[in-house]
Design a protein around this nucleic acid. Structure first.
Length: 237
DNA sequence: GCGACAG
DNA sequence: ATCTTGTCGC
């Protein structure tokens, strides 16, 4: 049995929750984690249009080792020509199990540690997962944005919440993702005749610009180059 | 109640 | 996410 127990109850409500917003301590139960999401979601900024001349774009991903409970957070920073200018990893024991909707509590600690190890400060973070397109409108990209204050975008490889039409076959085509009668993201085609990716706002970037940044950083493959490279880095060694 | 469910 | 044989399609 693992050290966590998602069935156990929190003891001392409010002060404990307030401290958990900044990760002291890190939530241990699903109820605690959901409460933190409910409290932090009001801090998400969705009306800013986003940075214009982005110099350094970071891609973030987390890799899992086969026979351990270790996670490896990886970040790659690219310049506007998509050349690598910095990268960092952080490997540590997982602090939360994988639970759909609470994904961030598993991946955030190693990503924040890796961010601390960068020497080049990114202007924009592209996260592997969702942002606004989330049951409580607070996916990994929103959470990372609120904690760092940086503009963030969520890019996921599979559908999670909401529904969407099939976008046209050409690169750049898209269809809105609808959840509870609201637009929470887009299914965006990044290559002709290839499955779309799922883009949603994280923090301080409009949906239009989020999609523009995704296309700008996706010259060759299905996924944005920053995420591809971070994924590769998270598996190395 | 049952299945589905970002990585 | 990761393991992993075979299978289907271009």
């Amino acid at each position: 049995m693992s050290w966590w127990d998602i069935r156990s109850r929190p003891d001392d409500e409010d002060d404990r929750l307030a401290r958990m917003e900044i990760g002291e301590p890190w939530p241990r139960t699903a109820a605690e984690a959901e409460a933190v999401q409910e409290r932090l979601r009001s801090l998400v900024e969705l009306t800013e249009t986003g940075p214009v001349g982005v110099k350094f774009t970071a891609g973030l991903d987390v890799g899992y080792a086969p026979d351990s409970d270790e996670v490896t957070g990886a970040i790659v920073v690219l310049d506007s020509a998509l050349r690598i200018v910095d990268q960092a990893i952080s490997r540590e024991k997982a602090k939360f199990p994988y639970i759909p909707g609470l994904f961030a509590f598993r991946e955030l600690p190693s990503l924040l540690a890796a961010l601390d190890r960068l020497t080049v400060a990114p202007d924009l973070l592209i996260c592997d997962g969702y942002g606004l397109a989330h049951p409580r409108r607070f996916g990994l990209a929103c959470h990372l944005g609120v904690l760092t204050g940086l503009p963030t975008i969520g890019v996921a490889k599979t559908a999670f919440v909401g529904s969407h039409e099939e976008p046209d076959a050409g690169r750049g085509s898209w269809a809105p993702i609808i959840l509870d009668h609201e637009v929470v993201g887009r299914a965006l085609r990044t290559r002709d005749n290839v499955k779309p990716v799922f883009v949603s706002q994280g923090h301080r970037v409009s949906l239009d610009n989020a999609c523009a940044h995704v296309l700008r950083t996706t010259p060759s493959f299905r996924l944005p180059e920053p995420i591809r490279l971070a994924d590769r880095l998270s598996r190395s060694d």
